[in-house]
């Protein structure tokens, strides 16, 4: 019953909170309308979720989120240094990273994380989702960059999306 009417509880919670934030109020009316939307919208877009997302290990997820937040700040400081310094010395490179995660949501998350963190923009997950192409602004050792991405971001994702 719950499964049928509330297939994505996390999405529903996010929708309700977003609705309340938008209206800047927690009146009964807004909570009711928000709850209605939180039930109806996930049902309406049900067909876009191809594979169910099951989150294991919420603590690992929180830890990953904190690591990523901190790395975003570090990445920005390093980008600022690279951008303001002499650009002739930069050594940009394309690096291919072979993936172990399979879940499409996990691949998308990994690509987004890599885009926002140290010196990298992820370009193109290959069609079979086994590799992502990463562009880095300044690398001395492409293999180390790939290893770092795998150990720092992919391993926690593997744990969280154990399926």
């Amino acid at each position: 019953m719950t499964r049928r009417w509330l297939p994505h509880p996390v999405t529903s919670c996010v929708l309700l909170v977003a609705w309340l934030l938008l209206n800047r109020s927690v009146d009964a009316g807004h909570v009711l309308l928000g709850a209605l939307l939180a039930v109806v919208i996930p049902l309406a877009v049900r067909r876009f979720f191809q594979r169910p997302v099951r989150l294991r290990r919420p603590r690992a997820a929180v830890r990953l989120a904190l690591v990523v937040l901190w790395d975003i700040v570090l990445a920005n400081v390093s980008v600022a240094r690279l951008v303001l310094g002499p650009s002739a010395r930069l050594r940009p490179a394309f690096v291919e990273v072979a993936l172990d995660v399979e879940h499409p949501v996990a691949v998308a998350l990994l690509a987004s994380i890599v885009t926002m963190t140290p010196g990298t923009v992820s370009c193109d997950p290959s069609r079979d989702r086994r590799r992502i192409l990463v562009h880095a602004l300044d690398v001395d050792d492409p293999d180390r960059l790939a290893r770092e991405i795998k150990s720092r971001y992919e391993r926690p994702l593997l744990e969280i999306f154990a399926c």
């Binding site: 920005n76 980008v79 951008v83 930069l90 602004l137």
Partner: peptide, 26 residues
């Protein structure tokens, strides 16, 4: 500002992409 500077002065498109996506967003 750093993001916009990166967009304006880095030499190729793939490098320019770094400025706005990271610095401007933060």
């Amino acid at each position: 500002l750093v993001g916009a500077i990166g967009l304006a002065r880095l030499p190729d498109f793939y490098m320019r992409l770094h400025g706005p996506t990271k610095a401007t967003t933060l």
